[in-house]
Design a protein around this nucleic acid. Structure first.
Lengths: 332, 332
DNA sequence: GTGAAAGCGCTAACAT
DNA sequence: ATGTTAGCGCTTTCAC
């Protein structure tokens, strides 16, 4: 390991025979210079391989040109797509996006955000975090935005409306003719309650039963483990909605290997519209929650906050029903 | 937006009636204090909601307790899993992991790394980057590790052996009885050449043909678009290997919707063993490249470098063949 | 157009 | 056990 010290602005100044102030202005392109100085500067910087120390710059300017994004679980394609969208917009606006993974562990989130906050100009946090952390964030001198369902009106939140998402799916399934609904939710997520409200809002008036189950993590594996409980009930549902596509795919797969025909014996639907949902068998009916657009919108909004510009308007996120074969049953 | 200034160490010192040095030592737990001072400090910190400014701390100590990981594409589950593994080890050792997404764009990688480098104690970079950037990294005063195939011996690289991975798969498929191989690679990745070498090393002695194709991005969609070209050839392969599982899944899906029976008309295999490969139909044969372990190992090694400890040994990554139904054809 | 000097928030000697 | 002080690498007045 070659621990050569990184060249500093002082090294450049000395080599070029100018003051450090001049180097600083040159590097930041803040004014014009005599040809002689410009040449010396360029040469010295090349020779030394100098580049600005972002830390030092941030210390004095108070601006990092970086934005932090803390997600619950990067292995969840929904979040990868949020990151994608956010990253694209950040880069296009001259910001770097630093992503940290919270590993679905709400507990350890505070130190993580404390480490991230001073290194960024703004923070995007996915999902519900304890109230004391939200308070701490609110007292920060930085813009903060949340991903998901608004729960407090003193913070900016971006996401599709969970009630609407669930209702959209339920409406379609009721119209299809399904009579007994199962919902395998994830009660540790705050929007689980909203999803349930959306489902009930549609199912109760329609006189349709709803059985509610829960997984302890929103993954394929959890779905696989959960589905037997649902399927073995005497009043087995004829359609099962998963907390998200991962859970639904896990359930559907396990149901098939248990010998059930999908969708004829039992139908499945998910939520998120992750890319892979199109490639499973049968292709999964789901609700598109605009993962990538969510990332784009939240990034545009937080950049507007950072730069004290008016909030961009007209950036609404409309969930869309994606109908595929996993719910295409013929009721004859 | 409430742009209250973050309280500094000086605010705490004043409020508690002690010197800033005392606050610093208290916050870092570097010695014991009189009960009186300890109480005042605790109260002042609570009241102010003070937390250390990591930037300022890093400036003087030269340590950030953060590690940067630049990946080609976070939407690729292989990379998400590398991140997972790396993150877990980082957290367990008191480091934060900051992930940046390079968006598969080699060109823009230099400014990205220049921004990331001073904010971290070490850098992990996935995949081939231009030689001048590698040179720049090598001259950095920080440990750097690469993910993938070693190409230069002056840098640390972690990953499974691409030649071996490809050979492993080819051996199995030859033994299965397949006679005409198709390989849909991704020539923009540097390890594509190694994969080809691995395939040829096995296929040539066996007297088996190999047709080579290419995708322009390593995604499901690219696989979907690519497969027709392969299938429509008069000398259609009886098994097609994808650059990775995503490509293979895309190809397999499109082949099925084109009316081909998998694996009876044509078999498919991928590489990576991403979680979803188990859930497609038919389940995909693939090679496990130890994504998560790769993240763990590279993180352990880079932390050892940062802390000037001896390199941990015995951390080898053995690719493993994962046989599933997509290649289970009966040759009668 | 160029430079001197103050200071961002913090740590690490060194003194007391 | 506690305080004083000199910077870390940089930007930013304010002189010249």
């Amino acid at each position: 390991m070659n621990r050569r010290r990184r060249p500093t602005i002082r090294d450049v100044a000395e080599k070029a025979g100018v003051s450090i102030a001049t180097v600083s202005k040159y590097v930041n392109g803040q004014q014009s210079f005599s040809q002689a100085v410009e040449d010396k500067l360029r040469d010295a910087i090349d020779a030394l391989g100098y580049s600005q120390n972002a830390l030092a710059r941030a210390m004095v300017t108070g601006r990092t040109t970086a934005i932090g994004l803390a997600v619950m679980d990067l292995a969840n394609p929904h979040y990868s797509n949020v990151v994608k969208g956010a990253n694209r917009v950040a880069l296009a606006n001259g910001y770097n996006l630093f992503v940290v993974d919270m590993e679905e562990s709400i507990a350890a989130v505070r130190p993580l955000l404390e480490a991230l906050a001073p290194r960024t100009d703004g923070l995007i946090v996915s999902a519900r975090i304890p109230n004391d952390v939200t308070d701490w964030l609110a007292e920060l001198d930085k813009p903060v935005a949340f991903l998901g369902q608004p729960e407090r009106d003193d913070v900016l939140t971006v996401g599709t409306d969970s009630v609407q998402v669930a209702a959209l799916l339920a409406q379609y399934l009721v119209r299809q003719g399904f009579k007994r609904f199962g919902y395998v939710g994830y009660s540790r997520a705050s929007s689980n309650a909203d999803r349930l409200r959306g489902l009930r809002r549609v199912l109760e008036p329609a006189g349709v039963e709803l059985l509610v189950f829960d997984v302890d993590e929103p993954t394929n594996e959890a779905g696989e483990r959960a589905v037997a409980r649902v399927l073995l009930r005497p009043d087995r549902p004829d359609v099962i909605i998963g907390w998200n596509d991962l859970v639904a795919i896990g359930m559907m797969n396990e149901a098939r290997s248990l010998g059930f025909k999908v969708p004829d014996d039992v139908a499945f639907a998910g939520i998120d519209n992750i890319p892979i949902s199109r490639y499973v068998t049968p292709p999964l009916t789901t609700v598109d929650v605009c993962s990538q657009a969510t990332g784009e919108v939240v990034m545009k909004k937080i950049i507007a906050m950072i730069e004290d510009k008016p909030q961009p308007t007209g950036l609404t996120l409309e969930p869309a029903l994606i109908i595929r074969e996993s719910t295409q049953r013929q009721f004859t």
